[in-house]
Structures are given as structure tokens and as C-alpha cells.
Design a binder for these strands. Structure first.
Length: 273
DNA sequence: CATTACCTGCAA
DNA sequence: TTGCAGGTAATG
């Protein structure tokens, strides 16, 4: 599920609702493999912490706590994070529940159990930061930066754009959408792009992410915003999940193939190899 | 680079 | 019943 726009939407929803709230108790943790921090540390350090800020790095949702700690959640394929009233009982797919003061609960629901939880100190946060590449919505992500990043690479466009060490936050949906918008075939050699094509790709990446954030993300099935609603961007896909349906640009049927083990959707006429 | 694994629900 | 799903890490 959640790629950059979905995690960003959740962070923006949660920030005003969680600022200055205190985590009073770990009310549920019933799938321990999701925890990538020693359980003893988690239990000793998390209760009593105050939430100072909620943000995002790559596809990680970050809760800045007091005493230098950061709670980091990765939603992987089916995770959803919401704030609920303390009176509502979370369902059986909600594997982490944190009790907050003010009769609220922070709920991490994850049907497929791929999601991950970390409680990071300053060094852990720095390591997470260093493991990811440029934020595509930041000022650092320019066409010139992209040109340099693509230049020496031997790989195809799609796998490269999915690599979080290069650009952080793109996933399968938005890579397909951005490549369509830029008119680039997913199998194009990364180093083969012209200056004009790089400029188009840069604009397309920004555009598809910004549009999705404006529509509060894309809900296929499990994704919910921080307030528990479905997103709206799924109604605006050009290619993703639209096999055999007409290309919005030329009307020819969208093709689905597999690239790098990922389902890949593109228009064979508009996206040149 | 490709395959497999991690999990579960759902559509074909 | 089989295959597929928005992600990532581990393994040939």
C-alpha cells in the first residue's frame, strides 16, 4: 500500500491530533515479529514519552518523542495508522495499540503483518536517514540531480526508481504513473535518457506525488488516512491497475507486464522503449 | 539479476 | 484452488 503520498497524508492527519499527547501504555502488541527493537527496550522506554511531532522520511512514519527517542512505523503492504477514541475496540488485525492521554488511542492495523516498528535513539534515527536517498518533494531533488543520478547507472528505469537508496518514497503505483506521464518505457536504460526526457521524468515524479497528496492518497483496499477515511487518488490513475483499458492520452489499451518481479502497467504507444 | 520469503484475503 | 497484491530483506 502506502507509498510516499499515503504516509505523508497520515503524518499530516496525525500531527495536530497527537502533538503534546503522552503515550501512557502499550495496550496491545500481539505480533512481536513486527518489533525491530528489543522488547525490553520498547516496554521500558515508550510508556510515559510525549509526542512532540509527527513526520515522514521515505515511507517511514516518524513520531518524535521526548528524551531523544523516535518511534518509527513502516506500513509495508497493508498497514494503516489511525487515532481512535479509547472507547472503540480495535479489530483483530490491529497489532499495536498505544494508549494516549486524553482518551485517545494510536492504532497500527496491518492485515498482512509485514509492517515494522522501531524505537530509535539518535544514532538509530541517523542510520535510518542515511539508508534512504533524496526526498522527491524536497528542494534537493532537481532535474540536474536526477541527471547525475541516472548517468552512471546500468539498470532499467523502473527498478532504479523503486530503489529507496536513490529516491525515497516511490513505490509501484507512482513509478508506473510517473513513467506514463513522462512518456518513458519502464525498461528504458537509465543512462539513455536525453536532457528533455530527464526533465519530463523529474516533473512527472513531482506531479504524481503532489496530485496524490492533494487527494489524500490512493486506497486499493487497506490504506486509510490518519482519520480512517479512504483516499481519493485511485480514481485518477492513468495506467496502474488499468490493464486493457484505454490510455488517457492515445486510447490504446494499457498493457500489464512484469518488470523486476513487479506488476508493471504502461502504454506501448506513448511510452517509447 | 532473479528467486524466495514474510502473511492474509480476495478475485479469477 | 491458484495466483496476485501498494514493500523490503535475504539468499543463490
Amino acid at each position: 500500500m502506502p507509498e510516499l503520498p499515503e504516509v505523508e497524508t497520515i503524518a499530516r492527519d496525525l500531527a495536530p491530533r497527537l502533538a503534546k499527547r503522552r503515550i501512557t501504555e502499550i495496550a496491545r502488541l500481539d505480533w512481536e515479529p513486527m518489533l525491530e527493537t528489543p522488547l525490553a527496550t520498547f516496554r521500558a522506554q515508550l510508556p510515559g514519552r510525549e509526542i512532540r511531532a509527527v513526520g515522514r522520511r521515505a515511507k517511514w512514519l516518524l513520531f518524535t518523542l521526548d528524551a531523544g527517542w523516535t518511534l518509527a512505523l513502516h506500513l509495508r503492504m497493508s498497514g494503516a495508522v489511525t487515532v481512535a477514541e479509547a472507547t472503540t475496540e480495535p479489530d483483530r488485525y490491529t497489532h499495536l495499540v498505544l494508549e494516549l492521554d486524553g482518551d485517545k488511542r494510536l492504532c497500527f492495523r496491518d492485515v498482512r503483518k509485514f509492517g515494522r516498528v522501531r524505537l530509535l535513539d539518535a544514532a538509530g534515527l541517523a542510520a535510518l536517514e542515511a539508508a534512504h536517498g533524496v526526498e522527491p518533494l524536497s528542494d534537493a531533488f532537481t532535474a540536474a540531480w536526477l541527471a547525475r543520478a541516472l548517468k552512471e547507472r546500468r539498470t532499467r528505469l523502473k527498478p532504479l526508481l523503486l530503489d529507496q537508496r536513490m529516491i525515497a518514497g516511490l513505490g509501484n503505483i507512482y513509478v508506473d504513473e510517473a513513467l506514463w506521464r513522462a512518456g518513458l518505457h519502464p525498461l528504458r536504460a537509465a543512462s539513455s535518457l536525453s536532457r528533455a526526457e530527464i526533465a519530463r521524468l523529474h516533473e512527472a515524479i513531482r506531479h504524481v506525488l503532489e496530485q496524490s497528496i492533494a487527494r489524500r492518497g490512493s486506497t486499493f483496499r487497506d490504506y486509510r488516512t490518519g482519520t480512517g477515511e479512504v483516499g481519493g487518488n485511485q480514481h485518477h490513475f492513468a495506467v496502474y491497475g488499468r490493464e486493457d483499458r484505454p490510455c488517457p492520452r492515445c486510447g490504446r489499451p494499457i498493457v500489464r507486464t512484469v518488470v523486476g518481479q513487479r506488476g508493471t502497467h504502461f502504454c506501448p504507444k506513448c511510452q517509447t522503449a
